[in-house]
């Protein structure tokens, strides 16, 4: 595992554990956790809260509930006891590959100008998840946020006013933050970004293009 410096917030981990995040955020959180044991362990603690709460709320099951469940199990046929194979060594973790239908080579990129490409992933409409391809040294236009933006680095690195983000690092940006991410010069940068509201671009051109790009 690479050394990850930028982690998920407690608020996001708890909301993911409780199941109250939009799908695009769930995807981003699940992808980061696949790369980050520190956040996986913190999530485990929040899941334990859910487990403790589960102990409280009992409602009697139907009389034949157990029998019906055993029938359900038997109808499911032979239970496989195989453990899942160890993770494949691709660039993208499993949750993301499930949305793309393969690793990076399966991504259907769309150019959005200045060498930057994106691929919007199919999630529910309450938030948007996209892969961003930023050539080494290129900048994403200066922008602010109307809601929350999560940016997870999958390859390469980017820098903005606050810090440098490398593979596995996640940046959590909110309404108070304006930034202009620039891809590090070492390699082209690939990120997974999730937003629950449109971004606010400072310059006119990106603002005009926004409706077409669905950013």
């Amino acid at each position: 595992m690479t050394q990850i410096k930028h982690h998920l917030t407690d608020a996001l981990l708890m909301a993911y554990s409780a199941g109250s995040l939009p799908e695009a955020f769930n995807l981003t959180v699940a992808t980061h956790i696949s790369l980050c044991d520190e956040c996986r362990a913190r999530l485990g603690a929040f899941d334990a809260v859910g487990g403790a709460l589960l102990e409280q709320a009992a409602v009697p099951m139907a009389q034949d509930g157990l029998a019906a469940t055993m029938a359900l199990i038997r109808a499911g046929g032979e239970t496989t006891r195989e453990r899942p194979a160890p993770r494949n060594t691709g660039v993208l973790p499993a949750p993301l590959r499930d949305y793309i239908g393969g690793d990076l080579e399966a991504v259907r990129w769309r150019p959005i100008g200045m060498g930057v490409k994106q691929a919007i992933l199919p999630t529910s409409k309450d938030a948007t998840a996209r892969l961003l391809y930023i050539p080494a040294g290129a900048a994403v236009p200066d922008h602010g946020h109307r809601g929350t933006e999560l940016t997870l680095v999958l390859q390469g690195a980017f820098l903005d006013e606050t810090a440098r983000f490398g593979p596995g690092d996640i940046e959590v940006a909110n309404e108070e933050m304006d930034h202009m991410p620039v891809a590090d010069i070492g390699a082209d940068c690939i990120c997974l970004a999730a937003t629950d509201a449109p971004l606010r671009f400072r310059a006119l051109m990106p603002r005009l293009a926004q409706p077409f790009l669905r950013i």
Binding site: T9, D10, A11, L12, L13, M14, A15, S17, A18, G19, S20, L21, R42, A45, F46, A48, V49, G50, L53, Q56, A57
Partner: peptide, 22 residues
């Protein structure tokens, strides 16, 4: 905390102050 886990709503401010030994 129960509301956060049971009612399927966003309650982001709760996480920082659960008061639980996590």
């Amino acid at each position: 905390i129960e509301k956060a886990y049971f009612s399927d709503l966003s309650h982001s401010e709760i996480a920082e102050q659960t008061g639980l030994p996590l």
